[in-house]
Nucleic acid binder design. Structure first.
Lengths: 241, 241
DNA sequence: TAAGTTTTCTAGAGCCATTAAGGAAGCATA
DNA sequence: TATGCTTCCTTAATGGCTCTAGAAAACTTA
């Protein structure tokens, strides 16, 4: 199946894969998730339905592969924002990365919905799936930045003794899972910020805020401002949008 | 189509509708959303697929009708929590209703996922759809409680002049849409709390927190505690879980 | 009992995912 | 150059799905 990575055959295969991914995305954006069927994708790239099974073993796998693309694209957008001012303090780069995340979501609502606001099939939840891998790289971006902030300018953390035992244990486990790069208390702050950000974007994309807001942007900025408070960022570290 | 509401036919029809709703729910809970097909539901109630079209015009409409059930059930659970201690201050009843919301979500994850964490079809977004109606009743619960709190023990609100113009306009519009029961500043506080609560539950249900938490309960309690702070609730108004 | 209404059925069109079996073309080796 | 392996693609077929159409059955009412 997997040919030598350099040959002509391999290059053709890569081109076909790219075309397939493009067709999936086009269908998703223009006609919705339900329109992304194996048959429709195959038609779009000019082959018969079953031929697609030479590239992906199932519909789920195809969806997972393209979703991984989206994760990588989103991560790249955030990394670009992060690195645009490499000399700026970590705090302002965190906010820049968050804004980049929302900007990508606004520019690509269909893709964002697929990435975040849709149930993940069991296949794609396996830790060796491309989707899971790409998701981890994405999570890494904000985590890395938070670690950097923690090391250069530690933010206030709650007293572990004040937290319920169950939460303390979970935070300790999570801290260990990121090789202790953040101690449990700092991990708690990180996760709190992450939850607020992610929750708000999820709701926006799922149209759960439509009943009150037509433009979520100022709400998002207020959320960022809350995050900046929690992370004790200087006023100087808070570029205004 | 619609018979006299009292007759024997009408009663039979109601019974069949109830049986259909029950079958949908069973399939959803036991075999997932993808298993809820017109054919499977019909098989479950012992009729042929097309017969179901005498009750609902489409798969979407059926899903919307059952989702409306779930909204009503959730709203009822919250109302029950709210009314369990009718003499308690509004603040503690708000927290009780929030806990009831999460309790229902935990007890009925599949249903909750359908209600909140799934894209809404255009049909069910129409304001005359049962789903939309039931959703409004649900939203009412926390809104009513917040209005009561605002009237009995007003919480601090931000200075409108400090908010961006766009947000101010949207809040004014929202305040008008609820007949001014909350002024724009109070509406802002309400929506902020609502967003946090909803966002966290959404993420929990969508398994977006699995990478860090195995048990979200203490995280939820912390979120509630934050809400209690924003609403300036007394310590006495904060029953511990 | 006769007419009308409501419910249900079968048949079928047109999708879908997926599997099976086989043909054509590229490519390496004898 | 001839042979055989690999890759890519095809058609055919299975069994599911939504939804439509038209006929039959059941029940209500006059």
């Amino acid at each position: 199946m997997a040919a030598n990575t350099g040959g002509r055959r391999a290059r053709l295969r890569q081109a076909t894969l790219a075309e397939i991914h493009g067709a999936v995305r086009t269908l998703l954006v223009e006609r919705g998730a339900a329109a992304v069927t194996i048959n429709a994708v195959a038609r779009q790239v000019g082959m018969s339905g079953p031929a697609l099974y030479h590239y992906y073993a199932s519909h789920d796998e195809l969806v997972g592969a393209v979703t991984a693309d989206f994760f990588r694209e989103l991560a790249a957008a955030m990394e670009e924002a992060r690195d645009a001012h490499a000399d700026a303090p970590a705090g302002s780069r965190i906010l820049a990365a968050c804004r980049a995340m929302r900007a990508w979501a606004i520019a690509h609502p269909a893709e964002f919905g697929w990435v975040f606001a849709s149930p993940i099939s069991p296949l794609n939840r396996q830790s060796d799936s491309p989707r899971h891998q790409a998701g981890q790289r994405f999570e890494q971006v904000l985590l890395d930045l938070t670690v950097e902030l923690w090391q250069t300018r530690p933010f206030p953390v709650p007293d572990l003794a004040d937290l319920p035992a169950s939460l303390r244990e979970q935070l300790t486990a999570y801290s260990a899972s990121i090789e202790g790069r953040l101690p449990p208390g700092a991990a708690h702050v990180f996760l709190t910020c992450w939850t607020r950000l992610y929750g708000l974007l999820c709701m926006e994309v799922l149209h759960q805020l439509d009943f009150a807001y037509t433009d979520v942007e100022p709400v998002f900025e207020e959320c960022l401002s809350g995050i900046a408070d929690v992370l004790a960022l200087d006023r100087a570290d808070r570029p205004t949008a």
